[in-house]
Design a protein around this nucleic acid. Structure first.
Lengths: 344, 344
DNA sequence: GATTAGCACTCTCCGACCGAGAGTGCTAAT
DNA sequence: ATTAGCACTCTCGGTCGGAGAGTGCTAATC
């Protein structure tokens, strides 16, 4: 400890200050820190250091004569430099494993909903999960199933065994024969392609296929968006919103309603999670870094899980005053667990 | 007006009092009522009548020397006897029609989500929609679609053109042949039956069918619950929660958190809507009649929509202090609109 | 030269107090 | 039967003041 910008003592103070503030939610003064410090250092000395930290913009006082609290930047340096990786305690790991891997195979949505639920209940924050992004999936099979008069169910499977369906309405006079022909044509053209091509090259490619029924192709292409994104609202699971109530930072209505409004809109959160640098590991987004109106007081710890070629995102959303070290460990463990669970 | 229990004046006073309270959220005193009353009646007289109403338990004062507010029972008599049916104003009807019937055919879930959204935005309350209850649907077709190695998608269509799917995991060594055979057997046995029988008689019936692969039948039967209920959580759409913030009765945290907690649990609400006397028309559930812990201060106006033989529920959830007459009209209109939309 | 003790100062929080305002219930007059 | 008049009660908002917490600065100390 002690890196480029901060000397040892400053690191120490910042760290302890944040630790204490995170657990009490009260501005912390020099006196408390002096006591909490194993090494002897008087309140006055600590005050000096705190002044330095404040000038650097890492902490601030809500008002003269209150203790200090961390700023977003303070949390940032804390997360980037001052916490050491943690592992989830055995009992918690066991609980996660049991609740998640439980029972026999369930629907993906079920698992994701359950994951969000567990994350929420384990952390007392808001659990968030996002269904895998099919864009990179490789189409393994397309099936057109007539369900009833004029209703056609499109089933698209991808290599990892996931599938999505859309119910279409078609002209009444389309017969089984042309459905089968179209299905064959679709499979020939699309199997092996990535799902993303449905948006781009596929429509043109299918247009001049003379075996397929052009009307069917048209409705299929129109429905493609749904196959890829599933309305994008539906693919997000959020649980534990009511945990916000227990947190003092959301005692006032303004803050609370801001966050709930954002969550209710869904799309902003979906986009945030989708675009948060897909791939690699855990990402922590702190306070104003979360570019959502209404959620300025929040942080998000997120990671990705994999199912074959496709990836989804899970995360924990809560006030900036959160136990970052612990949550990082939990998200990491859960993401891995989820990958195993879905892969198998 | 003026029915069994209440004389004309009492009815009048109760009605005007509730109207006024609903629009202002302030306890209403005798003075205000006297002014609002077209017919001349002095505050003192009104006070006497109000005392009577209070003894009957229809209104109460929050504290001595405040005006009166309606009790749950007050609202009840108001809804049952004092409001006259209303129709939705033309512009609102137009808006509902446009936003709901818009575009081409969409997925049922989309429509329901959209409906909940519109209800919420039009009423500034919480909009709630529940997917059709498949129990009474008549199975029109069952399809087993191999999606990938060891993954089988079960598609069940019912006569109205709705469909549901479940993704199953099956043993690796099940071949196309036995899948087809099983599918044929399933269709033979189940087409024409009601979906509800999947829970009851179907399992036994299928057990000793020697054409079907017994392993497939077993997983199918296990998945039946999901086909009928779709996890029951997924079939509920709620929108407009953040509208609660604008309502003064939820200014205090206790009330707010209670309601949000209930909504988040989902199942209690699903059950409430499912069991609210399926069939016939609009039902208003007021205050403590809503048997949900945490939602004692809420009322629900709900109705059902039909898609062929199956029925779903839509509703509006808000504080007991709501514009019942208006909401009744809106729910009624929307339910009919939804039926048309889905039926077509 | 860094650390610390001491002290004056500032600011919030909380309870007490008070007056204004609103609305009631009762009684007596209409 | 209705109403005017009045004393009474209770809430709400604002002010005041003391207690407490924490600071920044200065001067003493190691």
């Amino acid at each position: 400890m002690g890196f480029d910008q901060l000397n040892d003592r400053e690191c120490q103070i910042l760290r302890v200050l944040i630790d204490h503030y995170v657990s009490t939610a009260e501005p912390v003064g020099s006196r408390v820190l002096a006591n909490r410090f194993n090494i002897g250092l008087s309140p006055a000395t600590i005050r000096n250091t705190m002044q330095d930290l404040e000038e650097m913009g890492l902490i601030r006082q809500p008002h003269t004569s209150a203790g200090r609290i961390p700023t977003d930047e303070g949390y940032r340096t804390y997360v980037d430099n001052l916490i050491e990786p943690q592992t989830v305690p055995d009992d918690l790991a066991k609980r996660l494993r049991e609740e998640l891997a439980s029972e026999h195979k369930r629907a993906v949505d079920d698992i994701l909903a359950q994951t969000a639920h567990i994350l929420a209940s384990v952390t007392s924050q808001i659990g968030v999960t996002l269904a895998p992004n099919f864009d990179n999936g490789i189409i393994s099979r397309i099936e057109l199933v007539p369900v009833a008069e004029r209703r056609l169910l499109v089933v698209m499977g991808i290599q990892t065994g996931l599938a999505r369906t859309v119910l279409l309405e078609v002209a009444a006079d389309i017969d089984e024969k042309s459905i089968e022909a179209t299905q064959r044509a679709l499979n020939e053209r699309l199997v092996g392609q990535s799902v993303g091509t449905l948006r781009t090259t596929a429509p043109a490619m299918l247009k001049d296929d003379n075996r397929a029924d052009p009307r069917l192709v048209r409705v299929f292409v129109e429905a493609a968006e749904d196959l890829i994104d599933r309305g994008s609202g539906e693919s997000l699971h959020v649980d534990g919103t009511s945990n916000l109530f227990t947190q003092p930072e959301f005692a006032d209505h303004q803050a609370l309603s801001g966050v709930l409004r954002v969550i209710e809109k869904r799309t902003p959160i979906v986009n945030l999670l989708r675009n948060r640098g897909m791939g690699e590991g855990i990402i922590v987004t702190i306070g104003r870094e979360v570019k959502l109106e209404g959620a300025e007081g929040c942080s998000i710890v997120s990671s990705t899980y994999k199912v074959g070629q496709v990836e989804g995102t899970i995360g924990i959303l809560g006030p900036t005053r959160m136990e970052y070290a612990k949550l990082l460990a939990i998200i990491d463990y859960t993401a891995k667990l989820l990958s195993e669970q879905m892969e198998a």
